[in-house]
Design a protein around this nucleic acid. Structure first.
Lengths: 242, 242
DNA sequence: CGGCGCATTGAGGGCGGTCAATTGGTGTGG
DNA sequence: CCACACCAATTGACCGCCCTCAATGCGCCG
């Protein structure tokens, strides 16, 4: 079994148990792995891809550029995420996806995906569910963006990334790596990088977390959660097995 | 044919042509219509509904309440929208849905939906697509929320609502009804109602639009679009027929 | 060693928030 | 028909969060 399929299987097993046959079907799905450097667009706005991208290793961001020159990051993707599964059903990309780090990716051709979705009801629902989880994260970001201040917003973001990274085994205790610059944080939370910097100092000063380069340690999970008003249900809200 | 099914069919026909058989299947889906007064919760946060709600007539809002006392509206739904289709696959509602006006709704039981989705690949994809359109709107709201100022944000919101209402025949020329209070606008755009009020005065003062009570008229579409950096592609970005 | 990108700091300003009062429209009961 | 209650819209005053501009430090790499 190639690693790309492993990733995909593990991803969908988050949602429900897979039969051996289903796993076998999934193994045939991804194309051979590719390696991409950092700060590269892997999906271009306005394009009309014939495949979706499965992220095997690394970090990516979905983003849009506005006429006023600002960039808004609308999602941060980690290993195992289907970065643009929606492009399977949607005509044209209304945003771009770039790598934040060097990445290993595998493409999944829509043509093949179509076959799997049409033939395997259960897998089809799981893939649908995976886009619904994306939407749930979008909604949560919207809530935080609209109703929380800078400190709270950043706290929430770090809580979310911690939970998601922990879930795929990318955290040791309360330590994890988040290879993003403060400018990228700023484009996630809709603040200036200057203010992000000051807010990070506040989070450090309150001894909620440390952040040096890419290395983060959460020092006080309970309080960080409270400051960020973070409730992780939106991240793992799928139906139980059947 | 009952009106509820008509609505659902028209909704999916936005995405692709439906066969007579498919239409027939959809006709059997909605339960008898219900009427709900304004400011009522029709989906409760934390609940685990056995049906999804199809909005036949009226306006609804998805919203979340935060520990800090604020309310964030994450979506505004209009006639024809499937208000919580995602609850079909997601365990528990992570937000609530309330009526903004008196509404006519029809429930669609998940049990029945499951049958349709399993038996009809094409309909299944169209329903999936409808949740992807919701997600696209979420992303767009995120972008606007994070990267545009108050004037621009409200202009964008009115552009979006105009295009969506126009598409279902709810606008005459550049006039339409949007039965929301300024406080509700505020909870959409993440501003205080005081500032919304002042921003509306600016939009009026620049002769971009009028707004008296529920009645809106767009006076200068091109400039309103430009101010709001509004590009409607995200609203109708689905694949062509097949 | 020099260059470059990122982090950090300072100063000043503006957008939008909060608090509070007033106006106005609408529905209801006397 | 008027009085009153209630809710939405509006206005004013003041404040604070976050922005912009700009300079400085700092680590990494060629």
């Amino acid at each position: 079994m190639q690693p790309a399929a492993t990733r995909l299987i593990r991803k969908l097993e988050q949602y429900d148990v897979l039969s051996d046959e289903e796993k076998h079907v999934l193994e045939g799905l991804p194309e051979p792995e590719k390696v991409v450097g950092e700060n590269q667009d892997i999906v271009v706005e306005g394009s009309r891809p014939a495949h979706s991208v499965l992220l095997i290793e690394g970090f990516c961001a979905r983003y849009s550029l506005l006429p006023n020159g600002k960039r808004q990051i609308t999602a941060v993707h980690i290993a195992g995420d289907f970065v643009d599964l929606q492009s399977f059903l949607v005509k044209r990309m209304d945003h771009a996806v770039m790598t934040l780090t060097p990445c290993r990716i595998a493409e999944v051709r829509h043509e093949k995906l179509r076959g799997v979705v049409d033939e395997h009801r259960h897998l089809s629902r799981l893939l649908w569910l995976s886009t619904l989880t994306d939407a749930a994260i979008h909604r949560e970001w919207l809530i935080v963006m609209g109703a929380q201040d800078a400190t709270s917003h950043l706290a929430h973001f770090f809580c979310e990334m911690y939970v998601r990274l922990k879930a795929i085994g990318y955290a040791q205790g309360y330590r994890f790596q988040l290879p993003m610059t403060q400018l990228e944080f700023a484009d996630v939370v809709g603040l200036s990088s200057v203010h992000v910097n000051r807010t990070l100092q506040e989070l450090r000063g309150r001894e909620l977390m440390t952040l040096q380069g890419k290395d983060i340690e959460i020092l006080n999970w309970d309080e960080l959660r409270e400051v960020g008003m973070f409730d992780p249900v939106y991240l793992s809200n799928w139906q139980e097995p059947r």
